[in-house]
Structure formats: structure tokens, C-alpha cells
């Protein structure tokens, strides 16, 4: 029913999506918190940088990643001795997806953090909680709906990421060929329309499944809050 190549592309997409969300979430949470709760010179600049992948052509982002994390790029050369390589590897696809999804994840988390009354956090401080404990016990749990939404948006963005990925890590079956890239390849082959359609269908099912899971998670979290 599902061919080996198709399964490979589906699993790879899931792996890339999960890895990109897992890697970007902590950084996104920290960035969202800084943007929501701190005032400092250069905040507008940070905000602009965070949003950059949203407004740049994906190809440009992919090319920038290639320049920075390629074998001869400054960051790529720095990380290579540590055994971390991104170029033409599935990890590179995850990195590209994480960068492209980052603005969406940050935005969702930031919005839900900004919706928290800062005086709740002040109350926590007066009760003896240090700032990191206030963050862990109050800010983070109260921002739960935003975390789930952010993770879903990041994951969905990773499932659909095409331009930055193909530019940065090419289109290698079994390594970097995620579902959208597989669809693209199928279209390039004469008579590959049926295959492209099948792959597109899997893509739709995957996205719907992700949506359903996140809805459940968000509802479970907000149930605790709405009873509140």
C-alpha cells in the first residue's frame, strides 16, 4: 500500500519536524520571554531578526544557511570537528525547518506570555520565588496554550518547508528528501502525477493528525486553566 520510498519520505518528514520543533522550542521560549517581559535597547532589532525568515524568500534563508553552515562556512567549519554537520544531512533539513518556523513559534508563545498578568508573577516573587522559579511554576504553565500552538505551527511549517531545505541540503532520497521534496521530484518525472498525488495525500493526512494532537493537548492544558 505504501512503497518503501514513500514510507521513507513520511518518516523522514516526521523526524525532521520533530527534531526542528524540539531544537527550536527552548530557544523560542527564551526569545518569546525576553520580547514579552524585558525592555532593553535593541529590542526592536531582535524582534526584526526573529521575524526575518517570515519575510525573506526561503531560498535566501537556505542560501544563508549554506554559507554559514556549509562545509567551508564559518559555523560549519567550527562545528565539524565536534562531529556536527548539517550540509546535505537530515539534520540540515531540520535546521532549515527550525529557522523557517522560528518566527511563528516565537509569536505564538510571546502572545500567550503577554496575556499573563505580570502582577501574578510579582505576587509569586513576594511569596518567596526567585525569578527562575516564577518562570517555571507560573509563566510557563500559564503560557501552555501558546506553547502547544507554537509547537504545532513549527511542526506544520517543518512539514511544508521546501525552499530553504532544497537550497541548503539538496534533495537526497532517504537523507533530506522530505514529503514536499518528494512531491516535487515526482512531478519532475514524466508520468509521476499519480505518485505526486499519493504523496500529497499523505501530506494532508499528516498535517491533519498533527492538528488533532495539538488540539487535544491544548484543550487538556486549558481545561485546567478554564476551571481556574
Amino acid at each position: 500500500m505504501i512503497s518503501h520510498e514513500e514510507a521513507e519520505a513520511i518518516l523522514l518528514s516526521l523526524k525532521v519536524g520533530a527534531a526542528s520543533v524540539a531544537a527550536s522550542l527552548p530557544i523560542a521560549i527564551a526569545t518569546a520571554w525576553v520580547l514579552a517581559r524585558r525592555d532593553f535597547p535593541g529590542k526592536a532589532l531582535l524582534d526584526a531578526i526573529v521575524h526575518l525568515p517570515l519575510v525573506l524568500p526561503p531560498v535566501v534563508v537556505g542560501y544563508a544557511l549554506l554559507l554559514a553552515f556549509g562545509r567551508h562556512g564559518p559555523l560549519g567549519a567550527l562545528l565539524a570537528p565536534l562531529g556536527i554537520t548539517f550540509a546535505f544531512r537530515w539534520t540540515g533539513a531540520a535546521l532549515a525547518a527550525a529557522v523557517m518556523g522560528f518566527p511563528l513559534v516565537v509569536r505564538a508563545i510571546r502572545l500567550s506570555m503577554e496575556a499573563i498578568d505580570p502582577r501574578l508573577e510579582a505576587a509569586g516573587r513576594t511569596l518567596g520565588a526567585r525569578p527562575w522559579r516564577v518562570f517555571a511554576t507560573l509563566t510557563l504553565p500559564l503560557a501552555w496554550p501558546g506553547l502547544v500552538t507554537g509547537a504545532l505551527l513549527g511542526f506544520a511549517r517543518a512539514l511544508g518547508e521546501f525552499g530553504a531545505t532544497i537550497t541548503f541540503v539538496s534533495n537526497i532520497p532517504g537523507e533530506t528528501q522530505t514529503l514536499p521534496l518528494a512531491v516535487y521530484s515526482a512531478i519532475q518525472v514524466p508520468g509521476g502525477d499519480a505518485e505526486a498525488l499519493r504523496l500529497s495525500l499523505f501530506s494532508v493526512l499528516l498535517s491533519l493528525a498533527a492538528l488533532a494532537v495539538s488540539e487535544r493537548l491544548a484543550r487538556r492544558g486549558t481545561k485546567a486553566l478554564s476551571r481556574a
Partner: peptide, 15 residues
Amino acid sequence: RRVGVVFQDALLFPH
């Protein structure tokens, strides 16, 4: 500081 504050609107932790 060990200064306890009771706020006008209670500010209980909703979760």
C-alpha cells in the same frame, strides 16, 4: 524581603 502582600484582586494562581 519577607513582605507579604494581599492585592486588591487576590491574584490567585489560576492553574
